[in-house]
Design a protein around this nucleic acid. Structure first.
Length: 286
DNA sequence: AACTCAATCAACCGCAGTCGG
DNA sequence: TCCGACTGCGGTTGATTGAGT
């Protein structure tokens, strides 16, 4: 876990500063005020941001960006915190259970990623959005390949193609929502909806696949819905107490360093001094 | 070893909603 | 009611990585 997060951190470090800003064209130059930094965050910036979020809370991002001395917009600071530095973030691959949940919730809410993310504690809307995008792309490519194959050879039908409605079936656990549920969802953009409809056409085969997998993994729908309820409960709990709050059931367990900067900061000498003292130092320095 | 290509993910943008003056 | 600042969201882009050839 720690190794994984650190590798991600170092990966971020490897990005060249300002590379994006130079390659992104005039639009971005207009969006970011002059003198503001853009592109990948450095470890120092991360550490600084974490400190000031601790001091001022997850609010008033413009103010925070200013007093911290970071040459970043408030918006950028918020995004960095929410998507990367937040201590409650969960790292690593989307699990099969999460996949299933995302599928359910997408059928329910469409492309309202933040809403979906609320039911997946520790996952960000950005993460889920990226995951979904990858998944739909794969699905699209697979279905295109399938239609191309069937067009080229209309006489013979291979048996292998018929059981692989989804490319993600390899990961083993996606359950397509019912077509009625998909239609009721209403939300979502056109592309996704179209792909979901496409998905629903293979619902029967996927359902068989799902049953097969349920038998294999002994994973019942009761368990599935219990987990959804638990996730919702956890999410609402976090809304009240904050992520990783003291009263959280998980707090009984040793906290998992979910964000690399926390590991970084644990060795960072300034981390050990008093907040106010540090704040003074920072103000003096700036 | 060098190259290609798909997957992943961080970060950006524009837009819309909310809130206080 | 209007306006500006702030915040959050969804869509998109592009750098990096890793697997395959």
């Amino acid at each position: 876990m720690a190794a994984a997060t650190m590798s991600m951190f170092s990966r971020n470090k490897q990005k060249k500063d300002g590379e994006r800003s130079s390659s992104s064209g005039n639009q971005q130059a207009a969006a970011v005020p002059p003198g503001m930094r853009k592109g990948p965050w450095t470890e120092e910036e991360d550490a600084q941001l974490v400190w000031f979020v601790r001091l001022f809370g997850e609010r008033r991002w413009d103010f925070l960006a200013k007093v911290s001395g970071l040459r970043r917009t408030g918006k950028s600071c918020r995004l960095r915190w929410v998507n990367y530095l937040h201590p409650g973030l969960r790292r690593g691959r989307i699990t099969p259970d999460e996949e299933r949940l995302i599928l359910e919730l997408h059928a329910q809410y469409g492309s309202r990623w933040s809403r979906i993310a609320r039911s997946l504690p520790g996952r960000t809307d950005n993460e889920i959005k990226n995951y979904w995008r990858t998944r739909t792309r794969k699905q699209k490519a697979a279905s295109q390949a399938k239609t191309a194959a069937s067009a080229s050879s209309s006489s013979t039908v291979t048996t292998t193609a018929s059981c692989s409605g989804s490319p993600s079936s390899g990961s083993g656990s996606l359950t397509a929502p019912s077509s009625s549920a998909l239609r009721e969802s209403g939300g979502g953009d056109g592309e996704d909806d179209a792909e979901l409809d496409e998905e629903s056409t293979t619902a029967a085969s996927q359902h068989r696949h799902q049953q097969q997998q349920q038998e294999e993994s002994s994973y019942t729908m009761d368990q599935f819905w219990n987990e959804i309820a638990a996730a919702d409960a956890a999410a609402s709990y976090m809304m009240v107490d904050g992520w990783g709050g003291a009263g959280h059931p998980a707090a009984a367990e040793p906290p998992v360093p979910s964000s690399p900067v926390w590991e970084y900061l644990s060795d960072y000498s300034l981390w050990r001094i008093d907040d106010e003292e540090y704040y003074k130092k920072m103000l003096d320095a700036s």
